[in-house]
Design a protein around this nucleic acid. Sequence first.
DNA 1: CCCCAAATAAGATAGAATCCTATTTACGAA
DNA 2: TTCGTAAATAGGATTCTATCTTATTTGGGG
Lengths: 151, 151
Amino acid sequence: MTLPRETVEARLAAFREACVQKRLRLTHQRMEVFRALASSEEHPDVESIHRVVRKRIPTISPDTIYRNLKLLAEHGLVSVAGMSADRLRFDANMGPHHHFVCVKCGRIRDFTSRELEHIAFPAEARAFGAPCSMHLEVKGVCSACQKGRKP
Amino acid sequence: MTLPRETVEARLAAFREACVQKRLRLTHQRMEVFRALASSEEHPDVESIHRVVRKRIPTISPDTIYRNLKLLAEHGLVSVAGMSADRLRFDANMGPHHHFVCVKCGRIRDFTSRELEHIAFPAEARAFGAPCSMHLEVKGVCSACQKGRKP
DNA sequence: CCCCAAATAAGATAGAATCCTATTTACGAA
DNA sequence: TTCGTAAATAGGATTCTATCTTATTTGGGG
Ligand SMILES: [Mn+2]
Ligand SMILES: [Mn+2]
Ligand SMILES: [Zn+2]
Ligand SMILES: [Zn+2]
């Protein structure tokens, strides 16, 4: 909530314009859901957004929050923080390594990179606290999915 | 399942030793859960592991899979693939950026890094398919949590 | 101002993960 | 080897996130 007002205003203006271009109806609810998210730098979850929006629209339902965020994410107007994780997935490879994640089939492949291994924690990250690990996730379409094989 | 047998054997041996050192009981179920994970390079979920282990222990319950994987993760013997994501969290910052994630309180902070911006998709990742995005997650303890502030 | 596809509210539903409790078991000590 | 006990398990119940269903409302083009 400590974002510069001009940043928020810019986001809201861009949002309105994008919605018009994409033929997404500018409902009261949709606008307030986006405003709540665009005014925060906390990467809020649905419950947090719902709490905020309820102050302006007391009857708004959680489903409307979910529905709009999903729609907006599909249109590239917001994104999901963190990573693709519908369910927990585990790893017995405890060595340092990174992941290639297929956005089609969800397959996760390990890789290491000599180039990346020598990168220290970025100073910009250290400014927030004491880093202890670093993980790179490369998203893309795996060879199998490119060839149209079944997932 | 295409892992070299020696790799699997080494993992199992290390696992037995670690369990003894950490005073974790080597139950039949725990051993088979770890064997299933250590024999796979698919980053399997609980259901997949359950299917595999059931061939040897037909009565094993999903809860035992969950319980053991969680315990082993706490002891650093396995890890959770992907990222910390108990629930969906959203982001209105659509510019390219990375995340610092506090392992104590879950706070997510944005950062960019000139050093990282110029990194191309690693060749090792491109070997798996066509990358389309890249995201770095730095885990650590944020300043607030270091100072013992409440989450 | 009209119309209607799109969007919403509220409750039902699905599914993942955890909790509860009676029973079993691993393993240290005698 | 046997024994005692705390740890672990099985299976059902429960919690909680997210999605779906359906009747109702509404944004916005014509
Ligand atoms: Mn991995
Ligand atoms: Mn972010
Ligand atoms: Zn794929
Ligand atoms: Zn913290």
